[in-house]
Design a protein around this nucleic acid. Sequence first.
DNA 1: CCTACCGATCGGTAGG
DNA 2: CCTACCGATCGGTAGG
Lengths: 203, 203
Amino acid sequence: MSPRVSAAVARQTRASIVARAVATASVTGLEGLTIGRLATDLGISKSGLLGHFGTKEALQLAVLDAAGEIFWREVWEPVAATPAGLPRFRAVALSWLSYLERDVFPGGCLFVTAAIEFDDRPGPVRDAVLGYATRWQRELLWQLHRATDAGQLSPDTDPEQVVFELTGLVLTTHQALRLRRDPQAPRRARQALERLLAQAASC
Amino acid sequence: MSPRVSAAVARQTRASIVARAVATASVTGLEGLTIGRLATDLGISKSGLLGHFGTKEALQLAVLDAAGEIFWREVWEPVAATPAGLPRFRAVALSWLSYLERDVFPGGCLFVTAAIEFDDRPGPVRDAVLGYATRWQRELLWQLHRATDAGQLSPDTDPEQVVFELTGLVLTTHQALRLRRDPQAPRRARQALERLLAQAASC
DNA sequence: CCTACCGATCGGTAGG
DNA sequence: CCTACCGATCGGTAGG
């Protein structure tokens, strides 16, 4: 028996579901996603939609996966050619802030939202969110280690401290842009970033 | 005819509902609150609970109000006697971090959660969250202005920048404590705070 | 990918 | 007339 639609069409349908779900979840959160609403938006049935994932949790994991790919493409890839070490770290940090400014997701960064939503809910979604955050942090730490190895930053620099503070600048920028609608935030963040790097260069 | 229960008992019932809702909402978010679940937890009926507020939105606003009082009591009051200006600003900042560390709410700071949850949902709840955030920011700005007036910080200091960065330290500490379960976060935040203040003192 | 349902629960309101 | 609650149910929707 052949399936009613080809595997290629099914893949395309699944991709369109995930794309729509990523946009929706950035506004409502991953828990705020509902199968029925999403199906109606896409003009398909609930069961037709759910058939691609099995459970709502599997859909949430697929959304995180797709959001991760978008994040990588929008933040990392534009600066991947920058020389490794301090130049690349600065470029990535600025790219991260630019990504917030460009409203890549309609409701702000999906990972910022998901981290708050699932920090107290053990399970595969929390594990996935933590996994993405950890991998991103490791990427940043790696560039900082290369920067200290190359003498671009002081050997006294604590890379974890720098990443901790950069994450704070991103989170406060996110809040200022989305809650306060304050367009000055990225400028403030860039200013703080330069002080942070200057400090790390010469302490 | 007299009411079946006294106004005093009613007030007490309402207070116990709000207290429970604050704790629940810090974990599930303000939208994750449900009348039925809350009523069951408290051993009362849904309609008995809802009679105190009228709508779920009114309950959410009551929860924010109660959380604001707790925040004020836990963060501001312990340091209210500190001399105004820089000493009080530093004390408040440390108190804010200590409040995160002490797990005053079981699911982390309710305002951090609510800000993410409602930043894209216009309405009275968003307005209230923004209002609390703005008042808190003004309180911090006021101490910084007194600090510059008293010569405790350089006249070149940009108070809004300092509050922006302090907020970032609080948010990254919140994420590190709750998502990563990293107990080192408050120490990192205090370290960054001292550098931030030292910079503002002598630029 | 559909229609047709399930057990349950949603926010909110009826009369008593 | 008021309040604070009850058991039951309103119209709809949840995940499956």
